[in-house]
Amino acid sequence: MTRLNSNARHAVRFTLNGKPVEAEAEPRMLLSDFLRHQLGATGTHVGCEHGVCGACTVIVDGMLTRSCLTLAAQVDGCEIRTVEGLAPSADRLGVLQQAFRRNHALQCGFCTAGILMSLDHYLGENPAPTEAGIRDLLSGHLCRCTGYTPIIQAALEAAAQLASPTKETSDA
């Protein structure tokens, strides 16, 4: 049993994109705020703080997770993946990211991190997705700029590319 007092800050440790991290948080601190303001991982964005817009979606222990509906304290010891961990290296983009850029699947880019995380997770489990499947998945995200279609197109393209035997290498 672990009991954390409301008025104090407590150490929270987990693995972020493969690296151990640690910082302090009050019990009430949301994972989204912890990632952004305690760890400086500002790629995960906050759009509604009531679990609807999807901008803050991250992956916790293999589960898609609204980080605004999750306490930092809840994920102590977990493995977390965020948009910062998607690219193969700092100066290169992954296949899905490239497909987004190629298809103009983002404009302001504010909602994009959450959408990328949902797709990254989904394409891992569904290597041959349908448009309907992707639309169903992404109905849990709000985007105000793109009208969505280029996002769907990018996802289908990325899936096809990931499934093909000759994987294109990523570029910047």
Binding site: M1, T2, R3, N5, P27, L30, A73
Partner: peptide, 11 residues
């Protein structure tokens, strides 16, 4: 839009 303070118990 942040929660009010509470204790947290992980059972």
């Amino acid at each position: 839009m942040k929660p009010a303070a509470f204790d947290y118990l992980r059972a």
